[in-house]
């Protein structure tokens, strides 16, 4: 106790900076956002207030609920797509690739795109999926279709494809880690006990990789849920997501109170998802001995 008191100035000096950082850049902005959500708007000005009109508007106007549900749907599809691509890839890297050098090279090639600008990677899909894009050129030159198709770009499918491509590293990274941490002895033990490779996969590898599935899915879902670039670049008229709506409220629509209420709602949705994910993760966690 005396020791604590004697070193208090040093302690305060050491931790005041990060504490101030959290306070100024996280707690205060969230506080402002949440309180502005209760203000009223009298165009073009906003007045401090405490009323639930903004929330009432969000839940009564089908425009907002449709967009929120669509965003949830797209984020869910992106998560499933990333899992469907990421799990086999991580499994292949960990269990099939024998050479450590080749494994690291392939793993790096999954992660390296993260160093490239996000915009650039999203834009690439515009070039691939467009009417005179790479995909159409391939289809026409191989004679599968006679004229270029315009069905690939500017729709929700294009958004899901683009977002899966962009966020798949966030799925592969935790999956690679959990699969790599499964002791090979457990797989040998399963086979020793008369269980073939297929059932060993379902009864040993899948249960022990659930932590990675949950972590990867949570990250992918949250990132996709908050995305606003893919709808603009490759999404069509029915591609608007929650983040685009938010942008509009703080920009063209000039309705900060409504925007703040919407942002608070998004925050609550993400927090609930994180809470569920952490519950699932704790329930499925096992001590690897």
């Amino acid at each position: 106790m005396t020791l604590t008191r004697r070193t208090f100035p040093g302690f305060a000096a050491l931790f005041s900076m990060p504490f101030a950082w959290v306070l100024l850049l996280l707690v205060v902005p969230y506080g402002i956002m949440i309180s502005v959500g209760f203000w009223t708007r009298q165009f073009p000005l906003f007045y401090p207030d405490f009323q639930f009109g903004n929330y009432a508007q969000i839940f009564s106007d089908p425009q907002y609920t449709t967009v929120i549900l669509r965003t949830l749907k797209i984020a869910a599809l992106v998560t499933l797509g990333a899992l469907a691509l990421g799990f086999p890839l991580a499994y292949f890297l960990v269990f099939t690739v024998r050479s450590a050098a080749l494994r690291n090279l392939l793993y790096m090639s999954v992660v390296v795109p993260l160093w490239v600008s996000y915009l650039l990677r999203a834009y690439t899909w515009k070039i691939i999926l467009g009417t005179d894009g790479a995909l159409n050129s391939l289809l026409v030159s191989t004679g599968i279709v006679s004229a270029p198709l315009d069905i690939f770009l500017y729709n929700q499918t294009a958004m899901v494809i683009t977002l899966v491509y962009i966020f798949v590293p966030f799925m592969v990274m935790p999956l690679f880690t959990v699969l790599d941490n499964i002791p090979r002895r457990l797989i040998e033990a399963s086979e020793d006990l008369g269980v073939g490779p297929f059932m060993t996969f379902w009864k040993v590898i899948v249960p022990l990789s659930l932590g990675g599935v949950i972590a990867g899915s949570t990250m992918t879902f949250c990132l996709a849920f908050g995305d606003f670039v893919a709808p603009v670049l490759v999404g069509g008229p029915d591609g608007t997501m929650v983040a685009n709506l938010l942008q509009t409220q703080f920009g063209a629509a000039l309705n900060w109170p409504l925007g703040s209420a919407l942002a608070t709602l998004v925050l609550v949705i993400v927090l609930v998802l994180l809470q569920i994910s952490s519950r699932l993760d704790t329930a499925g966690r096992v001590e690897l001995t």
């Binding site: 002791p183 002895r185 457990l186 040998e188 033990a189 399963s190 020793d192 006990l193 040993v204 249960p207 022990l208 096992v286 001590e287 690897l288 001995t289």
Partner: peptide, 13 residues
Amino acid sequence: VNTVFQDYALFPH
């Protein structure tokens, strides 16, 4: 045949 492994290799889950 069945094996008793050095580190036991029990399924943790």
